[in-house]
């Protein structure tokens, strides 16, 4: 054992040395602040500070789970999260593959640059645009509906449409940005593999299936596993701006609830408790997903 360690030090000494400053960073700026997770079990009072605030056990968690709307907001969170996982997650992969199939370099670069634009607009601005298009009275779409004698639809305040709207705008906003990482991954695939396939007479679909997808498989697995870590974060900025009392039945989520009850009311302990709950769920999922990924040799640690 001692011998093995010595051996490892000789072989990987430089490696450990390279790792050290980064680890120190993580300890100081990430791990030390984690002490404050204790606030989840405290009646946190800013003036008394973390240590002096009284312990209250699971009370913050109980407040959250016993809330009248707990079922509704957890349900909405899970649903929106699931939709985003099913639709928003693969979207950039598909876009990257579509771009990859484009042979004209100029076209490819133009499309790439244009699709990445929405990432730079804040949700406040995007919502302003949505209102201009979809407002029930003056919105462009409803004015058209009106001209053709159709019934006006209040897209932004209809609880039946809000989830689809959230997911669609999310895909639209993030697809170009998300595709970048897959494009980088595609660039790493050895072109000689394609040449060999062509010689073998493999169709484009077969090339996609046997060369392209395996080539980016590990990145997909990595991003999927890491995505699971934030399964209960469904995009506060977006939902907060799109949420209103007419659609909240289907759109109020954990984060917006925490904002109202925890942050605005200054209940830091409660906000921390809900954050901890979300973290633990994410942690369990990541552990599980990593075990699964191991079967494909795609584990991330």
């Amino acid at each position: 054992m001692v011998h093995a360690t010595k051996n490892a030090m000789r072989r990987y000494g430089v490696m450990y040395a390279l790792l050290l400053p980064g680890l120190l960073y993580f300890v100081i700026f990430k791990y030390v602040p984690m002490v404050y997770i204790a606030a989840a079990f405290k009646d946190y009072n800013v003036l008394r500070g973390l240590w002096e605030s009284p312990w209250i056990g699971w009370q913050n968690f109980e407040t959250f789970f016993n809330g009248v709307y707990a079922g509704q907001i957890i349900g909405n969170t899970l649903l929106i999260s699931a939709y985003k996982l099913i639709f928003s997650f693969p979207a950039p992969i598909i876009l990257a593959l579509m771009l990859n199939a484009v042979t004209s370099n100029g076209f490819k670069r133009t499309i790439q640059t244009l699709t990445y634009l929405p990432h730079f607009l804040s949700w406040v601005v995007i919502y302003g645009l949505l209102v201009a298009f979809l407002a029930p009275g003056s919105g462009l779409v409803n004015q058209l509906f009106n001209t053709f004698g159709l019934e006006r639809i209040s897209f932004l305040t209809e609880s039946g449409m809000i989830r689809s709207l959230i997911v669609t705008t999310d895909i639209w906003q993030s697809v170009g940005w998300g595709a970048i990482i897959y494009l980088a991954s595609l660039a790493g695939i050895d072109p000689s593999l394609y040449e060999a396939a062509k010689v073998d007479g493999a169709s484009r679909w077969r090339q996609l299936w046997h060369i392209t997808l395996p080539g980016i498989r590990n990145v997909i697995i990595l991003l999927l596993v890491l995505r699971l870590s934030a399964i209960l974060d469904v995009g506060f900025d977006q939902i907060f701006i799109m949420l209103n009392p007419l659609n909240q039945e289907n759109a109020d989520v954990i984060e917006t609830w925490v904002y109202r009850v925890g942050m605005q009311e200054g209940r830091i302990g409660l906000a921390t408790a809900v954050g901890l709950f979300k973290s633990i769920i994410g942690f369990v999922l990541v552990l599980g997903a990593n075990k699964m990924a191991k079967k494909f040799d795609g584990q991330i640690w």
Partner: peptide
């Protein structure tokens, strides 16, 4: 070490300690 890094993506102490 990897777990040590991934762990920080999941758990955070929030704004005050930072």
């Amino acid at each position: 070490f990897l777990m040590f890094v991934v762990f920080t993506m999941l758990f955070s102490g929030g704004m005050i300690p930072s």
